[in-house]
Design a binder for these strands. Structure first.
Lengths: 190, 190
DNA sequence: GCCTCACGTTAGTCGCCATTAACATTGACG
DNA sequence: CGTCAATGTTAATGGCGACTAACGTGAGGC
């Protein structure tokens, strides 16, 4: 065997994420995750402490990926930064709808101890957006901006539910237009 | 005892919905649902066929409530109809965030046989929106409108994740402005 | 040629939980 | 009163599934 597969660990994480997205954390057994990568059952314990550790790692990775896309935006002027954040998020949501689903739905299955860390990353990501939007519209109350950003995430993350109706490029364009318009509307209210 | 509680059945459904929203379908035991209404465990089987039947009924009820709010909109002119749909949805989302959560997350735990019925109601609701929006913007492709409507739902349903940052009235206003602006942006693209 | 490490395997074990059984209680109603 | 229907209760029962044990095996290093 000599691991012709790049990295068994990563392979398992991908398979688990896809299964969790489809049937939910409790709807998938360790055995099934193993089967999805060609080993069976308890082999996973050679790579992860347990099922929950798997989920934790998946969620941390997702949050990290989203945030890192935003880190490159930090140096730009606000308008450009917002574009980078927005395109990055859309790219990710259209490219990995399963991950978006897991990220949205499964936090409560992460053991209490690790949940703080996941939440911290999520909060950081939100604050990246909030910071950029506030730079663009300094007069707007922070609470309102935060609410608007959450709403935009909801809009962008709806992707996994409306798959394939539009081509990917058009879908991206529609989402971008909607996100920008709704943000503008939110911050211009006061 | 003589049932001073209006209806045990409804009471159970409410408690179950709240618990499912908080910890997910599999994160809640029958025993806990019973405890939440002051009876314990298998008493629920006097009212429901089983745990899944409970969830099914909850989801059907939610979809029904959303749709019915929209049914009154049918007779109005498109612009008014959209307002009625939008305000109805916002009202519901802000008033029952738990139900929105359950509605979004738990469909896959409904037994195959009943899932069709739930999905049918959901589709009907989406089509109410799509119909109204297409009346308002006849030049826009149906697929694009559908995608936009899904995105708006995502926006409106983000509420349960951004609770309490804003007062309810302001939150409603923000959501309404964002939804209208994003819809307009989506349909004006082509 | 051995030792050991990395990775797997199969066969338990154990606990949780939905569901069912068997047995009250109580109020309406004749 | 006695009966019935509605509604609960507490003890099984049974299955599923996470996790652990005990046991290969093959590849490098020495």
């Amino acid at each position: 065997m000599t691991t012709p597969t790049r990295n068994r660990r990563a392979e398992i994480l991908d398979a688990a994420a896809a299964l969790f997205a489809e049937r939910g954390f409790h709807g998938v057994s360790i055995e099934e995750i193993g089967a999805a990568v060609g080993v069976s059952g308890p082999a996973l314990y050679r790579h992860f402490r347990g099922k929950e550790a798997l989920l934790t790692e998946i969620l941390l990775d997702i949050s990290g990926r989203l945030s890192s896309a935003g880190a490159t935006a930090a140096a730009l002027d606000p308008a450009e930064a917002l574009n980078v954040l927005l395109r990055g998020h859309i790219e990710f949501a259209l490219g990995h709808p399963e991950l978006i689903r897991v990220h949205e739905r499964e936090l409560h299955n992460v053991p209490e101890a690790d949940r703080r860390a996941v939440r911290r990353l999520q909060r950081l990501y939100v604050e990246e957006w909030v910071g950029v939007v506030r730079d663009l519209h300094p007069g707007c109350a922070a609470a309102r901006v935060r609410a608007a950003v959450h709403a935009v995430f909801g809009l962008l993350n709806s992707t996994p539910r409306s798959v394939g109706e539009l081509g990917r490029a058009e879908m991206a364009a529609v989402l971008e237009a909607m996100a920008l318009a709704s943000l503008r509307a939110a911050v211009s209210g006061r």
